[in-house]
Amino acid sequence: MGKAKQSLVEVRNLKKYFEVQKSFFGRSSTLLKAVDDVSFTISKGETFGLVGESGCGKSTIGRTLLKLYEPTGGDILYDGKSISSLKHKEMMPYRKKMQMIFQDPYASLDPRLTIAEIVGDPLVVHNIYQGKDRIDRVKELIELVGLKADHLNRYPHEFSGGQRQRIGIARALAVEPEFIVCDEPISALDVSIQAQVVNMLEELQERFGLTYLFVSHDLSMVRHISHKVGVMYLGSLVEYADVNELYTNMQHPYTRALLSAVPIADPDTAEQSERIHLQGDVPSPMNPPSGCTFRTRCPYAMSKCAEETPKLRDMGNGHMVACHLIE
């Protein structure tokens, strides 16, 4: 994992604010800063894991990267070219390269379409593979994800959650993308099925040289699949590093608390392990605390934390931390 790796997606100071109406009648609205000044780089052929609690903006980042949301500020570079200000039409060639796998395999497949239609839809949109070639391509895709060609004429309700997620993956792969945003792809699945899907994602990555952004709140699965991991809290990236570095040498108090909160599936270790207790809940992103957003729950908060927002600082070998304690 050297620095020589070529970057595929580069995010610079990305901001995504949503306008939220405060009162039903009035015009007064307030800004919800879902993603606030986030920068990171995803290298070609690697998996970037993004973790954090619900509402921290991790899914918003995934969607903004694909321009499903228009970024409020900052820049997204894909293969060196800025795509953040591209219009719908200019974006089309990039849509072929960037795909998405969704969280809920029950909601992300149209119940009225057959599997062949669902998987073939991206081919129609991008107008590739005509006539019989298209049918062959769909067959090839469905076999690629471990389903059978005679499944193609069935409807989504005839499949289990794991099988549906495979169909979603086949659809994402249809246009031969380079980059896939996996938005909590396994959180709706059972443990034994999760392993199947994660193994398949890894195999596909190896085979096609895919690059993933893996958004998840399952910290042990992220550790398993990712090369680099970023930790988010309330719209900002508080720490990111290579996976082993992050999990063995975590610096930010939030990362430490988050990792220690994961219940360990081993009775002996569970007994010995010390938990860091975080008090209270995540503050509302509509009215985030000043300075470091984590200071309200941080056991080490100082007066400086309320005054100044900590910047991401390089600890060496690409380990970035945003905390006043580390200076």
């Binding site: 289990s160 392993a195 199947q196 994660v198 042990s220």
Partner: peptide, 20 residues
């Protein structure tokens, strides 16, 4: 099928094939 980590070494997950 739960990810295991020993000495930072990465192992393939062992899944249960098929469905219930």
């Amino acid at each position: 099928s739960i990810p295991q980590f020993s000495e930072g070494e990465k192992k393939k997950l062992i899944s249960i094939p098929g469905s219930p």
